[in-house]
Design a protein around this nucleic acid. Structure first.
Lengths: 111, 111
DNA sequence: TCCTTTAATCGTATATTTGCGATATAAGAT
DNA sequence: ATCTTATATCGCAAATATACGATTAAAGGA
């Protein structure tokens, strides 16, 4: 039954919501920052830095990957993640667009 | 037990995540758009426009309000909502800051 | 070949989110 | 005073998200 009416909104709204959800957790924001800080794409280091178990970090990485925000390549026994800059740029733009839309139309807010 | 380690991250990360969560649903993005489109702060119209029950819309409005993104004032038997432009501006800025941070440091992505 | 290291995945518990109908509330209209 | 209209809130069910430990998988080193 119901409980999942997301499909009834526009694709753009869904995409933006999807992206927002990806960064709607401090751990995932922290992960993105760590990935950005190093030019080398480490991975296990994230586990050391974050106050979370290895399996939990792995799950967060998976979500970021599913959202397209990061890329991951297997490198021997270890995995290498880094920010998917292209996708990021796209969402940054989309976001600014939303902000701009709301801004212009809402100039004479009333309450 | 565990299951809520958000406090262990920085305040800024938490705030940004909180904001992202507020817009992490297409219905709430749609609501913001409706509010922006009209200069008058309607409310019941949102129920007519969205494919959701009145109680569900009311809940989404509450979440947006809790996140500080909209303001609501009671006006007789009806409520009047509109975008809290100040808060919105703040988060827009925070967001751009995050994007900028990630961008600069990640110029030589590897994978 | 067996051990170690690194990371993904599985299973599970708990919390949160999403949604609805029903009910409560509050003000204006009759 | 009662009815209507507009919203909020309650109670509930189902779905998702968060977190962890245990297990699995895969590659390099002993």
């Amino acid at each position: 039954m119901a409980v999942h009416k997301k499909e009834e909104f526009t694709q753009k709204e869904q995409d933006l919501a999807e992206f927002a959800k990806a960064i709607a957790h401090p751990a995932r924001i922290a992960i993105l920052k760590v990935l950005a800080q190093r030019n080398e794409c480490i991975c296990g280091e994230i586990v050391d830095i974050l106050p979370l178990a290895q399996s939990t970090v792995s799950q967060h990485l998976k979500e970021l990957k599913n959202a397209g925000l990061i890329k991951g390549t297997v490198d021997g026994p270890r995995s290498c993640y880094c920010i998917n800059w292209k996708a990021f740029e796209k969402f940054n733009t989309e976001f600014n667009l939303l902000f701009a839309t709301l801004k212009v139309k809402n100039e004479k807010a009333c309450c």
